[in-house]
């Protein structure tokens, strides 16, 4: 399977991907209700398709933007690629390591300090204490959080958490970098710094998946864009074309 991916130069291959969630229709308040409803055959679930028949091939070193309205399935797609969810049907093939930055705080423990979280997060991504020790200074430096390094994360602002998450995820050299919305909370200076680093990584062959509601940012960073609507692909192609039609539709 991995051999195939090498041949085609694709780092991610997604075929007929479908993700279905069962939303509980009625909230049962206890065992009694549950039994009564189950025996009456009333325990139904609302099926909800977060993604439907998505096909996508991503080549190594490409930067892909994913756009769409709230609830169109962007985060679900990224979570499937990272292996957090198992697809209802279809297949995902991923070659290489992933550094996921999905939503705020890419796997931090709020009780622990920034220092401890750097090591925890590194271990989550599969790196040893020693490796993280070697890169520790660079991570702290980039995040500009020297002053707060021994403060528990729970006291951090969302921007500070995003800084830390981004610094860790980009310091460990993963093959695929997933960035979901997290840059929106950073200030302009830090955003600029992040874009520079992402471009740098892409030059070195890192594949980037980038979700943002800011279409300008997507256009700036990504060559290719995937537009999702109601869990299905609405449009896929070069970034300027897709972004243009997306913006046109948003204006209507």
């Amino acid at each position: 399977m991995i051999g195939e991916l090498y041949m085609t130069g694709n780092i991610i291959e997604i075929e007929n991907l479908t993700m279905r969630f069962n939303l509980a229709q009625e909230q049962f308040s206890g065992l009694k209700d549950l039994i009564i409803m189950a025996s009456k055959g009333k325990l139904k679930f609302n099926e909800f398709y977060a993604l439907k028949n998505v096909m996508l091939k991503i080549k190594k070193g490409e930067a892909w933007g994913i756009i769409g309205r709230n609830g169109s399935g962007k985060s679900t797609l990224l979570k499937l690629i990272s292996g957090i969810y198992t697809p209802t049907s279809g297949a995902i093939k991923v070659k290489g390591t992933i550094a996921p930055l999905i939503e705020l705080g890419a796997g931090f423990d709020p009780e622990l300090t920034a220092r401890e979280n750097i090591f925890l997060n590194g271990a989550v991504l599969g790196y040893s204490h020693r490796f993280m020790q070697d890169h520790f200074d660079k991570i702290v430096n980039f995040s500009e959080l020297e002053q707060f390094i021994d403060v528990p994360i729970k006291n951090f602002s969302s921007g500070m958490v995003a800084r830390l998450g981004f610094s860790i995820a980009t310091m460990v050299k993963a093959d695929i970098l997933i960035i979901d919305e997290i840059l929106a909370v950073g200030d302009a200076n830090f955003q600029e710094k992040c874009y520079k680093r992402m471009c740098n990584m892409m030059e070195n062959g890192t594949t980037v998946l980038f979700v943002s509601h800011n279409v300008k940012d997507v256009e700036k960073i990504c060559k290719k864009v995937l537009w999702l609507e109601h869990g299905q692909i609405k449009m896929v192609g070069n970034s300027n074309e897709v972004c243009q039609s997306y913006q046109n539709e948003m204006k209507e």
Binding site: G83, I84, I98, G107, F108, V124
Partner: peptide
């Protein structure tokens, strides 16, 4: 759960 929802572990 917060960790599980954001990274594969």
């Amino acid at each position: 759960a917060p960790l599980l929802k954001k990274v594969y572990v």
